[in-house]
Amino acid sequence: MEQEQKQALEQAMQSREKRIRNLKEMDATELESILIELREEHQHLVSLEADCADAAEAGYYRQLIKQNQNQSTLVQKKRDKIYQKQIKTVTPKAPLMKNIGRAFLVGGLICAFGQLIINSVMLQYGLDFKEAAPFASITIVIIASLLTGIGVYDEIGRYGGAGSMVPISGFANSVVSAALEFKREGMIYGIGAKIFQIAGPVILYGTLASVIIGLIYYVMG
């Protein structure tokens, strides 16, 4: 009796597998009816698993439930394909050239400003480029932080996109905006914890990369 039941379940599963393979995306009603069938079967299988006394038996049904879920996913993907294609046709394309131009302008200006500071520091204090570069970074970080505080940097970001995100000013903006936004949750769980919301991954993966590269450098002498 039980053996027969299992066979019937497996057969249903296999024959449905074939049906699903052959289904076209357009067969909306057919897809819906298979989904309903799958849902009903799922419920049935769950109750069978729950009723199982020994673990091996339950494992068998878990297997079937897994198959059932895979079939569901497959059918849903087929069903959703047409819809997702339709979305693509109505979604406006981003103005690529405009965005690129703005990123170039904003990013370039920030870097040129950095160069200006480096030049003047080099001239003023007779430093070389390597010693002068940190002054530029610090100045940019401080200015970007203040602009974030007075609510201007997000407007620059909206205009400049990657141009204001990739320079060190964007890093400062991500640190400061997170700290600012979460100040109302307190000094510890607010500012303290959230200040690393965006900066954390940058520092983490930057450090990891430098350690790995450093190890290779060390080993290779």
């Binding site: 940190p134 970074s137 610090i138 970080v141 401080i142 932080s145 203040l146 974030t148 505080g149 007075i150 609510g151 060190i168 890093f171 400062a172 640190v175 400061v176 905006s177 997170a178 700290a179 600012l180 936004e181 100040k183 500012i191 200040i195 900066a199 520092i203």
Partner: peptide, 21 residues
Amino acid sequence: FGITVALMMGFLVAMIFDPKG
């Protein structure tokens, strides 16, 4: 220097300003 300045500024700005939204 970069990380310290950014964190310091983050803290200071958060102390002084409120988010404008």
